[in-house]
Design a protein around this nucleic acid. Structure first.
Lengths: 339, 339
DNA sequence: AATTGTAAGCGCTTACAATT
DNA sequence: AATTGTAAGCGCTTACAATT
């Protein structure tokens, strides 16, 4: 049977209030002798506080929810690791919710998290033009921070992102600098804000170089290897197997890897005939042949920052910056030619 | 401000008990007219039950904890997906805990989960010869199921595993059948029960073929690409760059991929000079060059099964089988020669 | 018998009072 | 002023009683 604070109180010969004070390490309000005695009894009895009773009394559950589109995409586990790193020392639990790229499930997850009375939510939303799930959070004034995926109606809200426009610009510029001109831009879903920003970044690079942005062949995938592979395959098929492009820039590494497969299957050489650049720098990027040149995101740091920001919000403090934008970095490997 | 069951009761002109009954869909005990009226009021007010108050009243939190060694290892996200699939329809929340391959953190996570009053725990432990974390669970009679990682002292307890011995046997047998005789067995950590079972499986295969199990060169890695790469590199270095083995069987795909890198860097050909077989069949396995032959684990199914088993235990029912062992399957790709 | 309400209780926290 | 205790309250569920 479980021990409660009342049992400890009786065993130590003090009131429940006193036990509560030592359990919560309140510096004021308990004499040193009493504190030691109560601590000994707690240790002895193997008592640990009941979080749900405490939660009901304080209105805080010491848990947060994380909603992501797809835990199988290796970018997200890094986010999770960063979040855990920030949360663990504070004793917060993390509810993981995979929305499976389905906005309906995402909303459902928000509802469940609300029932669980999480103190805050970190959201990497599956689409950028819907904020109804955030309305639910606002109604209950549950703080949240957006992570990786901007939601356009809340762009000014708390969030942690990479500078997507700049990351895409870096990739496109690098490709242009190597002489590539006919770009196949394999972007993510068109309605995603980060995809739009990256499209702008690619156009920036073209304009800077005096190249025509209208010449960019832009396709959309869903961030899976298959979507990248089939999109590029369709383009090659339509052109009779000859590449109508000399460079591919993909919205993530998995699609880039898919593109590489479609390209190499046709006997087209990477990087001699076609250069390829990805985005994210997940582990598979450096394992494929040839190793993938990509725009790295500091995923672990982004996760950690988002949790720190949320912690700050949950403490009722004003963060110095509500929106933090992190720097991408081009990692040159072997799917691009030597410059 | 938040609406409570008392607010709804007042608005609908009924007692809290009645509201509670309709919220929980108790078939008996509420007249159809009342039920409809209360439902309308709930809808109108946007009320949702407070899980923590309910949890205190019922002693159930409708949440479970999952502890895994490393979410960045692509095998585990599949487990997570399977678990979520089983949990979501029942409205259970999932606390994700990454032990970071550290038994100390693992124990700490159990303590935190106990404070959160989870109704059950799924544990993929980082070592096999310690069950002190399970003692904590037993003391509070919190049901748990072991997943993927057996803990030897509780081998008879609820658990979901793949048939590791048989999986290893299949891999070794396939290598022997192709004529490979000098095996480098790149196993996982030696104290892991599943690693011991796989070692037995490899020996079984050798004995069946009349080969000498003592001839197996066995090394241990930590399931990372780096550990596989450096282990094989050290062996090659010691032998002056010439392979002293004609086949590698690795304890997971990531180590197999590391081994491939070390091998190819020396100009040794796969599969002509050395065959390689992995374990797990995670996504990177089919993306590397050449695509990796591997022993597939039904990770998604294993996750789902473990959650179903836990659900069963939490409902206080006796599961038909406390231990479920799933079948591995050899997936032949291109790191082994054509048979 | 079906419907509805009363009231206690789940295990904590914390404002306030009482004691030293 | 520092230490300790009293008692109410957090928002539910549910056994039991009361009503129709």
């Amino acid at each position: 049977m479980k021990t409660t604070i009342a049992d400890i109180a009786k065993l130590a010969g003090v009131s429940k209030a006193t036990v509560s004070r030592v359990v919560n390490d309140r510096p004021e309000g308990v004499g040193p002798g009493t504190r030691a005695r109560v601590k000994a009894v707690i240790e002895e009895a193997g008592y640990s506080v009941c979080g749900v009773a405490r939660g009901l009394a304080t209105g805080k559950s010491r848990s947060v929810g994380l909603i992501i589109p797809d835990i199988a995409n290796p970018f997200f586990p890094q986010l999770v690791r960063g979040i855990q790193e920030a949360l663990r020392p504070r004793g917060y639990g993390l509810f993981l919710c995979d929305s499976d790229r389905d906005i309906g499930k995402e909303k459902e997850h928000v509802r469940v998290l609300l029932e669980k009375h999480v103190d805050g939510v970190i959201l990497s939303s599956t689409i950028s033009d819907c904020d109804c799930q955030l309305d639910l959070l606002d109604e209950r004034s549950v703080p949240y921070v957006l992570l990786d995926r901007i939601i356009e109606a809340r762009a000014e809200g708390a969030g942690v992102y990479v500078d997507n426009r700049r990351g895409a610009l870096m990739a496109a510029e690098y490709l242009l600098s190597g002489g590539s001109r006919r770009l196949l831009f394999l972007n993510g879903p068109a309605d995603l804000s980060l995809a739009k920003l990256r499209a702008l970044g690619v156009q920036d690079a073209f304009r800077e170089r005096g190249a025509d942005p209208a010449s960019i062949l832009c396709l959309n995938g869903d961030y899976s290897v298959e979507s990248g592979e089939s999109a590029v395959d369709a383009v090659l098929e339509a052109a009779g197997g000859k590449p109508t492009f000399d460079a591919v820039f993909a919205g993530n590494d998995m699609m880039a890897i898919g593109a590489m497969r479609a390209i190499r299957r046709r006997g087209i050489r990477i990087p001699q005939d076609v250069e390829v650049v990805g985005f994210d720098d997940v582990e598979p990027a450096r394992l494929v042949e040839p190793p993938l040149t990509t725009v790295a995101q500091p995923a672990f740091m982004m996760g950690r920052k988002s949790a720190e920001l949320l912690l700050c919000l949950m403490d009722g403090k004003k963060p110095r910056k509500r929106t933090v934008v992190m720097e991408p970095a081009l990692v040159v490997r072997a799917t691009t030619r030597f410059r």
